[in-house]
């Protein structure tokens, strides 16, 4: 009897956890199919499929431009960070030198920087470089969180690779560059995919820099576009359109996270760094 009760309580708990996790997104999907006065009735199920909000979002040139901006910025940031991080993490993981521990701590410290602390300085730098209100402003500034994160995770990963393979290469006379590109890189694909994905998500979601370093609607990234989407007044927020836009930008992320969930969990715990 008590066993049965325990099982029931356990599944009730599971049900609550799943319900709370999924419901807000489910409700956004329901809302995204509603227009006009239907929005003001609370429904728990989809009553009718009306795609006009989606058509509205997908045919809005500004929103599609934001999606393109976000893709471009996130991809470039990740590519740039990866390029610098692979060689740097080799040095940090496999070469013994003085001050290595301190350097690692410094890199970790950078990832802990509150973004606001560098905002004023970055603003000046971006103005001086003449890249204010261009994607370059974001590509530059996002390096502050994508680079330490990728270096950190790749370093922990490389540290765990067996010494033997590297020794064999050294005996064959391979230079460090050859060791990285020929020996380690082929072994690192899983780690590269995970860190790349996590850094991509981080860049895709970033808000403070994107809000501060853009001025015109056509330069906005997706989070800024969604945050600033409003109607004629505060009381006329187009909730249906807003939810459709939210669903459109969230579905690819949820799909990616679910496909790669094992790798992501491994990457998060290796880095212990924020997602």
């Amino acid at each position: 009897m008590s066993k049965f009760l325990n099982a029931t309580l356990f599944y009730a708990l599971v049900f609550v956890i799943v319900g709370v996790s999924v419901f807000p997104f489910y409700y956004a999907v329901i809302t995204s199919f509603k227009t006009g006065t239907a929005l003001f009735e609370v429904d728990y199920f989809i009553t009718k499929l009306d795609f006009s909000n989606y058509i509205n979002v997908l045919s809005s040139p500004n929103f599609m431009r934001s999606v393109w901006n976000s893709v471009l910025i996130a991809a470039s940031t990740v590519g740039f960070a990866m390029f610098l991080a692979v060689t740097a993490s080799y040095a940090l993981a496999r070469v013994r030198f003085k001050g290595r521990g301190l350097l690692l701590i410094c890199i970790l410290a950078v990832s802990m920087f509150p973004q606001i602390a560098v905002l004023a300085g970055l603003f000046e730098l971006i103005r001086a470089l003449g890249i204010y209100n261009t994607p370059w402003a974001m590509i530059l500034s996002y390096t502050i969180f994508t680079l330490p994160f990728t270096v950190w995770v790749l370093t922990t990963f490389m540290r765990d690779l067996p010494v033997e393979i590297e020794e064999a290469a050294i005996i064959d006379g391979a230079t460090p560059w050859v060791i990285i590109t020929q020996v380690f890189l082929p072994l690192m694909w899983p780690a590269l995919v995970t860190t790349g994905l996590l850094a991509f998500i981080g860049a895709w979601n970033e808000f403070l820099f994107a809000l501060t370093f853009t001025a015109s609607e056509s330069q906005r990234t997706v989070p800024v576009a969604i945050a600033l989407l409003s109607g004629a007044s505060e009381f006329e927020i187009p909730w249906g359109v807003l939810m459709a836009a939210s669903v459109i930008v969230t579905v690819p992320l949820i799909a990616l996270v679910l496909i790669f969930q094992r790798k992501i969990v491994a990457g998060l715990t290796a880095g212990g760094v924020k997602g």
Partner: peptide, 16 residues
């Protein structure tokens, strides 16, 4: 299912 809230961008979850 538990991972879903984490996958949703903060701004989007704020709006939802």
């Amino acid at each position: 299912a538990v991972l879903i809230p984490w996958a949703i961008p903060t701004i989007v979850s704020a709006r939802m």
